Simulated scan of single mutants.
Amino acid sequence: MPPAKDVTRIAAVADIHCTTTSQGELQPLFAQASEQADVLLLCGDLTDYGLAEEAEVLVNELAVMDIPTLAVLGNHDYESGEPDDMRKILTDAGVKLLDGEACEVAGVGFAGVKGFAGGFGSHMLQAWGEVSIKQFVHEAVEEALKLESALAKLNTPQRVAVLHYAPIQETVEGEPCDILPFLGSSRLEEPLNRFSVALALHGHAHHGQVEGRTSRNIPVYNVAMPLLKKYFPDQPPFRLLDIPLTDS
């Protein structure tokens, strides 16, 4: 059923891990999303090894879409050192890639970054000690600043944050405790709270939780495809969410 006129319906999924042998596998998913939503959000790990050939397969799968598609890259999309090639292939096919950018679609503002790791709350890694640790923390800080800058550019009543790494611990719980610090960073939560986003979406944690909230009660959704298949086995593996076009 099409959404009411006072809302924008988004379809969101992450971690589709498209490979060179994925021809035809993702088209049904994208066709259903196109029928049910106003915009598709791809929250990172679009490919399995970050190969240009995988991105070519993905854009062929996306050819069935007739709604705008926004995306951020994930860690897998950097694996082979070809992120610039991937960006060109995707943008040439009409996908809007967000890496510190913002855009408005159907009355809603979207800001996106990949994000980075570093841990959560009082256990978040700090920039102290070896140069390599400081560089690691610097990457996390830079991603948070990019998200803050992108959100600040939006004048829409509602803002949505599109991430790959998690901004809160709640949606990654269920993964082995030892790897939680590598699944996201609380530094990404701060801009969400500051700009009172309508919601945030991420992937990366295939065995986490589907929903959580920031310290200021902003909803956060983990839309990793393996997780959605587990929690919603009778539904297409994307999350449908309605965004009211006013903030009241």
Rank of each mutant, 00 (worst) to 15 (best):
R194M: 10
Y231P: 01
L51R: 12
L183R: 07
R194E: 13
F120E: 02
S122P: 08
V172D: 04
T21D: 12
Y221R: 12
G118A: 08
G74K: 11
Q135I: 14
T214F: 05
E211D: 02
P233T: 07
Q23H: 10
V39I: 08
L183P: 07
Y49W: 09
E211Y: 08
T246I: 10
D99W: 13
G24P: 11
N222F: 04
E101P: 11
E170V: 08
P28D: 12
E148M: 14
H204F: 07
C43I: 06
I89Q: 00
L199D: 02
S122Q: 12
T69S: 00
N193Y: 11
Q32D: 13
L201Q: 05
D84R: 13
I67S: 06
C177E: 13
S132Y: 15
S34T: 15
A200W: 04
S215M: 11
D234R: 07
G184W: 07
N193H: 11
H123S: 13
H202A: 07
K146V: 10
L163F: 08
N60S: 00
V59L: 00
G212F: 02
G109K: 02
E190M: 14
L227R: 03
A200M: 04
K114G: 13
P157D: 10
P237H: 04
D99C: 13
Y49N: 07
S80L: 01
P226E: 03
K134L: 10
K114V: 15
T156E: 03
Q126M: 15
L125H: 07
Q209T: 15
G50K: 02
P2Y: 12
D48K: 06
A161Y: 01
T214R: 03
P167D: 10
L62F: 00
I67P: 04
G109C: 05
V7W: 09
E61I: 00
V113M: 11
S149C: 14
P191T: 06
V95W: 00
G115Q: 09
A127K: 15
L29A: 08
I243N: 07
S80V: 00
G112Q: 08
D242E: 15
H76V: 08
K5V: 15
E35D: 13
E61W: 00
G100T: 07
S149D: 15
E101H: 10
E190A: 13
P219E: 01
A71Y: 01
S80E: 05
H202L: 08
D92P: 00
L245V: 11
R159N: 12
F116C: 15
T47Q: 10
D15K: 05
V105A: 11
L154S: 07
F238Y: 09
V108T: 12
V57E: 05
L163K: 05
D66P: 01
N155K: 14
I10R: 06
P3M: 14
Q32E: 12
V113A: 14
Y78K: 06
G129N: 15
V223F: 01
Q158T: 03
E139D: 15
F238R: 03
G119Y: 06
N193S: 14
T8L: 11
V223R: 02
S122V: 11
G24L: 11
H207L: 07
